Computed example of a mutant assay.
Amino acid sequence: MSNKFDPKNKIIRLCMLGMGMEEQGNSEEASEVFLQAWNEAINDFERFIAAYHVAKYKKDISERLKWMETSLQYAIKSKDDSVKSAFPTIYLSISKCYEELGDYNKAKTNYELSNSYNTEPYDKGPFYHGTRADLKVGDLLVAGRNSNYNCELKMNHIYFTSNINGAGLAAALAKGEGRERVYVVEPTGTFENDPNVTDKKFPGNLTCSYRSQYPLRIVGEKTDWVKQTPKEVNQWRKKLANNKGEIIN
């Protein structure tokens, strides 16, 4: 499985910048940034993400439909496993466009296509968990600890990912004084897409983030992830501190 979602990726950063502009009410500037992302995208994965964001903020329904179908075309071509999680969202968006245009047959077809995709995680791993805790192979990571992002919240799930750099970022942001650690973990029970990131800023679960109410068993440790600079970690901390969204627990 390839994990192409990288917050440092130029196209993803442009889309994040555009979303920030849109949230501040600067729609025209945001549209220009999304088009810049589209024009500078160099592979199918980047084109899928850029086209999706161009589409999402189009006021004209026919234009939105054209761009959303373009996003779907590149999502299919990308053959990236993580993109499969975005298909239900894209087909549903296409269905709504056809509905608004009065083409109820095509709306129904795309709605059925959206529902035909199994939203259960298909990911086979390997999986990782980032923390500062000093643990050993065989130890179990369990739910019920306080959130790294809201110290008053006791988490009902344990979180993990198949994106090693995402786990590395979680380790950098974790509470505690220990060194950043990324453990290889095995879920001991069923798990689901993390609703805190799935279908939020990006379609589907491109960050390959999951959660489970069952423990995770540590089976190893990795040291070869891309580490964030102190400046980048501080930027992420500020972003999280300013995030007014409620944690879905």
Rank of each mutant, 00 (worst) to 15 (best):
M1C: 07
N3Q: 15
F5S: 05
P7I: 02
K8F: 07
N9M: 06
N9L: 05
K10L: 12
K10W: 09
I11W: 05
I12V: 05
R13I: 03
C15H: 10
M16N: 13
L17E: 15
L17P: 00
G20I: 08
M21S: 07
E22V: 04
E22I: 00
Q24T: 08
A30V: 04
V33C: 12
F34N: 00
L35I: 14
A37F: 03
A37C: 00
A41T: 07
I42S: 15
N43H: 05
D44N: 10
E46G: 03
R47Y: 11
I49C: 03
H53S: 08
H53T: 09
H53F: 14
S62R: 15
E63W: 09
R64Q: 10
L65W: 04
M68G: 03
Y74T: 02
S82G: 09
Y91H: 08
Y91F: 10
L92A: 10
S93H: 06
C97P: 02
Y98T: 06
N105T: 15
A107F: 08
A107E: 08
K108S: 15
L113P: 02
N115D: 11
N115S: 12
N115E: 15
N115R: 14
S116C: 12
Y117L: 11
P121F: 01
Y122F: 13
D123S: 03
K124C: 07
F127A: 03
G130C: 06
R132C: 07
D134M: 08
L135Y: 14
K136T: 14
V137R: 01
G138A: 06
D139M: 04
L140W: 01
L141Y: 02
V142E: 10
A143M: 09
G144W: 10
N150E: 10
N150M: 07
N150R: 10
C151V: 13
E152T: 09
K154G: 01
M155C: 02
M155V: 03
M155E: 01
I158G: 07
Y159Q: 05
F160L: 08
T161M: 12
T161K: 08
A167N: 01
A167P: 00
G168E: 05
A170H: 05
A172W: 04
A172K: 02
L173S: 01
A174M: 11
E177N: 12
G178N: 05
R181N: 08
R181A: 03
R181H: 08
V182Q: 01
Y183V: 06
T190R: 12
T198S: 00
K200R: 11
K200L: 09
F202Y: 12
G204K: 00
N205A: 04
Y210N: 01
R211Q: 09
R211H: 07
S212V: 04
Q213W: 07
V219D: 14
V219C: 14
G220A: 14
E221F: 11
D224N: 14
V226K: 15
Q228H: 12
P230S: 15
Q235F: 11
W236V: 10
W236G: 08
K238V: 14
K239S: 13
E246A: 07
I247E: 09
